[in-house]
Amino acid sequence: MNENMLKHDWTKEELLAIYNRPLMQLVFDAATVHRQWQKPDEVQISTLLSVKTGGCPEDCSYCGQAARYHTDIKVQALLPTETVLAHAQKAKDAGSSRFCMAAAWREVRDNRDFDRIIDMVKGVNEMGLEVCCTLGMLTESQAQRLQEAGLYAYNHNLDTSEEFYDEIISTRKFDNRLETIKHVRKAGITVCSGGIIGLGETIDDRVSMLRSLANMEKHPESVPINALARVAGTPLADLPRIDIWEMVRTIATARIVMPASMVRLSAGRIEMSEVEQAWCFMAGANSIFTGERQTLLVTPNPGVSEDMQMLKNLGLKAMVLEKKEACAN
């Protein structure tokens, strides 16, 4: 299987037809594609650390880190570099092969905090981990600095469809998301971009979001599929839990249309049973996120030992990086 076999001109009708296949057929088809393109018994363990928490000026309706919402989340300034590197080493020792650093910023600014992020990236890269950041919007020159420091991946989710986007966020536009992804790609950094389901969107919205990703000139190397983690005090706190079969359908569709990508089962796992997560793996998910203190950024998440036991129960194993190419020039 190679890049030339990938399709980049999906129609909405084609994706809807895939999403709406009978469930058993859809999961079988996705599992077949998964086995053709991926190692079906491997799951990448990725650790996500909030290096700067809360106080964000954005108004993302799902996010407890937005300053305008009254939540119980404690604002935390940018962590010291040595603290972050200690977390990264601990994550590596626990079996993670990717370490992601998140800062609750609207956009990166060229200041001392960004200089410290650069130092963190260099340090994690030297550990032999895939290092990922999610810092908000980036300029072309900022993306280049991150690449030169050794950044492997940059996360910037589309969140939802272009059509539904303004219902969820008003402080930036869907095109701003695409612009940052373009800067990341131009700098030679791999792209991590996916979305959230359970925001009140329609099936058409989910399919439209996946179509935006699958029709990029190059598919994102990583596609996180998040279930809404409801945070008290946010506008979406009272929405119902997304049905697990909708999660499975979204993952399966992502796997079929972006077969070479890592499909990451991300936020919302705390509300999923082991059986429900197993269905997601069967449908093509091959990565999970862990976080220290059983949190994923600011929401509850299964613990590392619990995740490792689940993988053992399912006959899966943590992915081990054979060789990580240095990202720095």
Rank of each mutant, 00 (worst) to 15 (best):
V43I: 10
E163M: 08
A102G: 15
E292M: 09
L135Q: 00
S212K: 00
C132Q: 08
I225F: 12
M1Y: 13
N2G: 13
Q144G: 06
V248P: 15
E276A: 02
M5S: 10
M216H: 05
A229D: 13
A88N: 00
W37G: 12
T83Q: 15
L79R: 12
M137S: 11
E82A: 07
T47M: 14
I203Q: 05
G95K: 09
H219K: 10
K317D: 07
I197D: 04
F114V: 08
R293L: 03
R269A: 02
M247T: 10
A149G: 05
V191E: 12
K173E: 15
S141D: 13
W245V: 08
T160Y: 08
A237C: 06
Q25V: 07
K218E: 14
A237R: 09
M5F: 12
T299A: 13
R206D: 05
R21N: 12
I270Q: 14
R98H: 01
M137T: 13
P57Q: 00
I244N: 15
D93E: 14
H156K: 10
D29L: 05
A102S: 14
H34E: 09
Q89T: 01
L236N: 03
A237T: 02
M272N: 02
A104E: 14
R145N: 02
E3T: 04
Y19I: 13
V51L: 14
Q89P: 03
L6R: 13
A86R: 15
S261D: 09
I203M: 07
E292P: 09
S141G: 00
A283P: 08
L178I: 02
I251M: 09
M137E: 15
R255S: 04
F28M: 15
P22L: 03
R21C: 09
A77P: 07
N155F: 01
T180P: 01
I73Y: 03
E107M: 11
V263P: 04
R177E: 13
C133W: 11
L199G: 04
L151F: 01
Q277P: 01
D238S: 13
L239I: 06
S212D: 11
R68G: 10
L158Y: 07
L311G: 11
E322D: 14
E271Y: 12
Q309N: 02
T71F: 03
V320H: 15
T11A: 06
S287H: 09
T134M: 02
T234W: 01
K173V: 03
L15M: 15
L15P: 01
C132R: 05
V131Q: 05
